[in-house]
């Protein structure tokens, strides 16, 4: 018996991962805070610890609505100003 797979085609493309930076010294860490409770606290502390250990610089903090994708302007600013971004905290 032949049956259909239930998921079908997708428009999604798998983006290539960025090359890992061998050394974070001198690079700028950005934070994309989704404004969930404690997200900012957690991400800022992570950025500080990472900077202490590697010589990176803690850079700008951007915020977004937790329920919506980050606006293009926010992504544009991060792209221009930082070399890595910490994000992705839930409740």
């Amino acid at each position: 018996m032949r049956i259909y797979a239930p998921d079908g085609p997708t428009t999604a493309t798998i983006a290539a991962g960025a090359h890992a930076a061998g050394d974070l010294k001198g690079l700028t860490i950005g934070i994309l805070d989704n404004t969930k409770p404690n997200a900012g606290l957690l991400l800022n502390r992570m950025a500080e610890r990472l900077a202490e250990r590697t010589g990176a610089i803690v850079g700008p903090v951007e915020t977004k609505n937790a329920a919506l994708a980050a606006p293009d302007q926010v992504m544009g600013r991060l792209t221009r100003q930082v070399q890595l971004v910490l994000t992705g905290s839930a409740d």
Binding site: M1, R2, I3, Y4, A5, D7, G8, P9
Partner: peptide
């Protein structure tokens, strides 16, 4: 649009599905 994939099943037993 790409056509959906098909799967082969040896039986129509609902548990197998």
């Amino acid at each position: 649009v790409d056509q959906p994939k098909m799967l082969d099943l040896a039986t129509e037993d609902p548990i197998a599905v």
